[in-house]
Design a protein around this nucleic acid. Sequence first.
DNA 1: CGCGTTAATGAGACTCAGTCTCATCGTGTG
DNA 2: CACACGATGAGACTGAGTCTCATTAACGCG
Lengths: 146, 146
Amino acid sequence: MGDPTPFVTALDRAGYRVTAPRTSLAALIADQDGHFKAAELVAAARSRHLEVGRATVFRTLEVLAGVGAIERIDLPSGEHAYVGCEPVHHHHVLCSRCGRTSEIDDAGLRPMMREVTRQTGFRVDGHRLEVFGLCPACLEAANGAD
Amino acid sequence: MGDPTPFVTALDRAGYRVTAPRTSLAALIADQDGHFKAAELVAAARSRHLEVGRATVFRTLEVLAGVGAIERIDLPSGEHAYVGCEPVHHHHVLCSRCGRTSEIDDAGLRPMMREVTRQTGFRVDGHRLEVFGLCPACLEAANGAD
DNA sequence: CGCGTTAATGAGACTCAGTCTCATCGTGTG
DNA sequence: CACACGATGAGACTGAGTCTCATTAACGCG
C-alpha cells in the first residue's frame, strides 16, 4: 500500500508535532486509492480500532492541506473530498466510477488565464480545475458491460 | 435592477408551474449582483416579507439549476453559491472582494481535455473550472488603498 | 534523562446547510 | 368551473464541520 512517510515528513518539516493520531491518519491516507471524504477517514480509523477523535481528523486534514500534502476538492455532487498529492500546483482528473485520481499539470491553463484577463479586465489570482471522467480500467469495464 | 423574466420563462418552458414563490425568487435572484448563497436568498426573502419557505428556496434553486438558468459553484472556502447565467457551457470569474462574476467561454479548454486524455487515458466526461481574482473596479480601489 | 512549555487531543455540545415528510394549497387543464 | 396533481411551508431530521475545555504528551533544553 501507500507510503505514509511523506505526510509525516511534511508535517515535521513545517514545524508540526508528529503525534500518534497524525501518524495513524497518515497511514490511512496513504492507503486510500483515490479521493476520500473526511467521514470515510473517521470510519476507517474506527474500523481499525485507532483511537482518533472526529475533531482530530478534521484538524489533521486542515493541517495537511495547509502544508500541501493533500488537496481539497469538490465532487460534482457538492460533497467535499481530499486527495493526497505532491505540493506543486496541478489539477486532478477524477474517475466518477471508481474514484481513482490522476494528476495533470496546468500547462495549457496559463495562456487561458491571460485570455481571461484580456477579456474581462480581472486580475486572476487563482483558479480551480477539476476534471471528471472514466479511468482506463473503468472505461474497459464499461465497454464490456454495455 | 435585473430582469426576472428569463428565470420565469425558463421554468415555464421546461414544464414547471409558475407560482408566486418561484416568481418572488426569480426577482430576488435577478437583483443579485454577483454570486449568492442559498442562505442569503432565504434572508432576502424574509427581509422583503415574501413568504417563501426555506425548503422552497432550496427546491427552486435545484430546479433552476436543472434548467440551466443558474449554476452552482464552489467558493474557495468550500461554501456553495449560485450565479444566474446563460444556459450554455461556460465558466465564471469571481471577484474575491465584491463577489461580482463575469462569464468566460471554455475555448482554450477543449484542447487541454484532449491532452488530458492523451496523458492519462481517462475518457473526459465533464469538468469544472472556476477562476478567482479581482474585478477591474476592486483592482483600482485596491491600488488606491495599498 | 527528566522537566516544563505548549501544541495537540478527545468528548461531546453546538451550529448550520440541506433534506424529508406530510397535510394543505393553487396552477393549469379539460 | 372543477379536478388532478405539482408545489408549498412548517418543522423535524441528518450529517458535516466547528468549538470549547480539561487532559495528555511531543520535543527542546538543561
